[in-house]
């Protein structure tokens, strides 16, 4: 670690599995960790969530039928217990995933509304929430304080002379922890020094330096 030593540790073991080869539940785990580990709002994993909801729905129907059926054997009841345990686990993951996004969306709501480039990373519901939230917040600020201030102090989207904006936006310089599932080549650090992102290595560095590898799934956020 901290420097050269430690040998890249190319374990070459089971860590090789890329996201695409995982089952939905484990993929959701990776997606959730990534959302938690980064400052920016990642792309909404709509397909994954839809597929998980479909499966949860099917499971729920199956559970309901089997539970109401008096002929269900003891063994089936036992299986149902396990199935339901897992459903709760998956639901917890989905909840936490959505809440993490909601937290980011509310934090950056105004930025989201005025930046069309980030709209594709949000689901429809998320985008309309961002819009309504911003509107609510603004109306509230106006009614409670701003309307009683002189006109020139009422703006909420000013950029001060030192470049500091009133609109908070995601900071891409915040470091992220990544684990390279594949060899991500070499990158150049801001101070001009190179850093090799070999397979199986772990790094803490600025998000914008490795954004592409994270989005490709080659680098896993920890």
């Amino acid at each position: 670690m901290f420097g050269e030593g430690g040998g890249g540790g190319d374990g070459g073991d089971e860590d090789e599995t890329l996201e695409g080869d995982m089952d939905d539940v484990r993929r959701l785990g990776v997606v959730w960790v990534r959302e938690r580990g980064t400052g920016e709002i990642m792309s909404w994993e709509g397909d994954l969530i839809d597929s998980i909801f479909d499966k949860l729905d099917q499971q729920q129907k199956m559970v309901d039928t089997l539970r109401s059926d008096p002929d269900t054997s003891e063994e089936e009841h036992f299986k149902l217990m396990l199935v339901m345990t897992e459903m709760e686990r998956v639901k917890y993951l989905v909840r936490s995933y959505v809440r993490t996004r909601l937290w980011k969306i509310e934090k950056f709501s105004q930025y989201i509304v005025i930046t069309p480039e980030v709209h594709p990373s949000l689901s429809g519901a998320e985008l309309s929430h961002a819009r309504r939230y911003t509107e609510l917040l603004h109306t509230h600020f106006q009614h409670s304080v701003l309307d009683s201030l002189p006109e020139w102090l009422r703006k909420m989207d000013e950029t001060s002379s030192d470049g500091l904006s009133m609109i908070p936006k995601p900071n891409k310089n915040i470091p992220v922890l990544i684990y390279c599932r594949r060899d991500c080549g070499e990158i150049t650090l801001p101070d001009g020094e190179p850093a090799a992102l070999g397979k199986g290595s772990t790094h803490l560095l600025k998000y914008n330096l490795v954004e592409q590898w994270i989005k490709l799934g080659w680098a896993e956020v920890l």
């Binding site: 670690m1 901290f2 420097g3 430690g6 040998g7 890249g8 540790g9 310089n173 470091p175 922890l177 650090l189 801001p190 101070d191 020094e193 850093a195 199986g200 290595s201 772990t202 790094h203 803490l204 560095l205 600025k206």
Partner: peptide
């Protein structure tokens, strides 16, 4: 180094 740390093996 300001913005980079390699932490293999942890």
């Amino acid at each position: 180094q300001g913005s980079y740390l390699q932490m293999n093996g942890l």
